[in-house]
């Protein structure tokens, strides 16, 4: 299962070189390259993105988690609504979820004003959307499996038996 192995390694660090991936597995570098190309072509690998701790930067990025409730009719499916919302560049992720609300949407913008305007002018007016609840992100502690704290210092002795 070279695909799984390559995916796991890229999920750990998408900047591993194909040579390093080859060294860590039983694969040749050319096989790693071919596997990655196949996974991209098949739409399994959809992108490679940095995990950013915005709090560590001066210029603030505003993010919000938005709960959306919708009503469906014969002509409109969840997929139709999702497609419409997903087109907005402000929407960074969109998922249909179980529970009290239907969609779990993440949005990003340069200011609270911008994000609020987007919700009130672009999202809320969509006819099928019956309710929105917006939660602004105050601090993020973990993103994509990566803890954003200072981390555990390596306090091991430098040479030990």
């Amino acid at each position: 299962m070279s695909e799984r192995e390559v995916l796991e390694l890229l999920r750990e660090n998408a900047r591993y070189s194909t040579a390093d991936i080859a060294r860590m597995t039983d694969l040749e570098e050319s096989e790693v390259e071919a596997t990655i190309e196949e996974l991209e072509a098949a739409g399994v690998l959809r992108g490679y993105q940095a995990v950013v701790d915005w709090d560590a930067l001066e210029d603030e990025r505003v993010r919000a988690e938005v709960e959306l409730n919708v009503t469906l009719d014969r002509e409109t499916s969840y997929g139709d609504i999702a497609e419409r919302l997903a087109r907005f560049p402000q929407v960074t992720s969109l998922r249909l979820v179980s529970g009290d609300y239907d969609f779990d949407m993440e949005v990003e913008g340069d200011s609270i004003r911008e994000v609020s305007q987007f919700i009130s002018e672009k999202v809320a007016p969509v006819p099928e959307i019956t309710q929105t609840v917006t939660h602004y992100v105050m601090t993020s502690y973990k993103e994509n499996g990566i803890e954003l704290g200072d981390g555990d210092d390596d306090d091991r002795l430098s040479v030990s038996p």
């Binding site: 390596d154 091991r156 002795l157 430098s158 040479v159 030990s160």
Partner: peptide, 25 residues
């Protein structure tokens, strides 16, 4: 222990990458 001496040298510098550690990271 012969390990001790290397530990002392390694501790003197702060740019050392240690592959001398016998415990999990």
């Amino acid at each position: 222990s012969g390990i001790r001496r290397f530990f002392e040298i390694a501790e003197e510098r702060d740019d050392v990458i240690s592959l001398g550690v016998g415990e999990p990271d």
